[in-house]
Design a binder for these strands. Sequence first.
DNA 1: CTATGGCACGGATT
DNA 2: AATCCGTGCCATAG
Length: 470
Amino acid sequence: MLQAHYQVLRPLTTAHLAQTMTLLCMTAAELRQQIDSELAANPALELVEERRCPTCARLLPPRGACPICSRPQSLTADDPIVFISPREDFYTGSRPNQEEAPEDNYSSAVEDLPTYVLRQIAPELPVADRPMAAYLLTHLNEDGLLEASLVEVARYHHIPLSHVEDVVRMIQHADPIGVGSASPQEAMLVQLEVLAESRYVPELAEEAVRCGMDLLSRHQYTDLARRLRIGTRQAQEIARFISENLNPFPARSHWGDQREASAPPMQVYHHPDILITHLNDDVNGQLVVEIIMPLMGTLRINPLFRQAIRQASEEKIDEWKNDLDRASLFVKCIQQRNHTMQRLMSRVVSIQQSFILNGEAYLKPLTRALLSLELDVHESTISRAVANKAVQLPNGRIVPLSMFFDRSLNVRTVLKSLIERETRPLSDTELATLLAHQGYSVARRTVAKYRAMEGILPAHLRQSPVYVPA
DNA sequence: CTATGGCACGGATT
DNA sequence: AATCCGTGCCATAG
């Protein structure tokens, strides 16, 4: 029945194609903006009353029955229920005039680090300083460290250096604490300072970070002890405190020494574009996939407008006709987008079902190319649809949709559990053979890379490098 | 000599 | 066409 409905919108023009592609890339929040501006600009477009399912009270698309309550019997447990779920509240919240409540002002479902930080400091930040703060934040590297020279920033914005430093200080105290520091050392010093406000910090920790960074990172505790003029044991304790509580790279969640640069620039996902839940919250229930449509009600062409156009004056008629075409194109594109997302998710979820249910180790290798073949669309279509989207799993975790296409996540997870269960530190070579026994054949060098990705230290630094006294 | 990280190459993926 | 990823080789540290 849905098929039939969507067949109607076949005629493809290049404009249609281009706009569908653009819409496909958008997250729900971006889509919302797009729709808002289109509604405001085009009188031919209107938003009509929503429909709710009489049984479950879900919001429904304009036509067709409730996808949950009236699902066909023929569906097996492997076929997830996929439908478009209109939810305005999800993205707009209580929008205007409350600039201070960060959770209510969703500009995007996927927020990058600069935005995330800016949002935190915005309330205290004088408006005049915003451009400068924004400039600073855009010059963070992927570790959350600042790569710009403060002197130059000051000169460029014609602001005293001390003022720039004040703003940097504010940034450093925002959530990934230490973000915006010039070096790992500086970041850690800030973290110490903040930590000291709420809990005990070993006396010489600051001293150790200040002058013993080189030794700390190489785990040379005897030398460190000598430099601080304390006992080795005390030095080890300080080192342990530091490695457990401080993070030299604020944008990374875990601490590893010199990690290889594969950690993605941190992104904070506030709100998913897609929800995956169990039917009726029953853990064994069928999977239900909701593709968020950030809008109550439904978009359509205003029928009054269509009538009015017949009696339009000569000058106006071209303009109005243009509006009408735009509006109907827009509606078609939106529907096309939804249709594609629906087909895509249906397939992805049924392929990766065991990943969703059982965790990362069960992720199957899946490429966009394979999927494009199955769904009979171009590869780039899949790429666009997958990019920048966030999915909420039944367990509540919000992950990027691209995780479903991660080729090595399952191996990495097995590797992690292998290391967690080890009794003595295993070398990369040993790990590689162990993995091979479990059917994952990867090269020794690759094990090292995966280790680094997960922020796991090399074998000789892993277990008990620090002796923990009672 | 062993373990590991850097660099770079080639094939797959986007 | 551009980018990502697994791997091999080599240098370096312990």
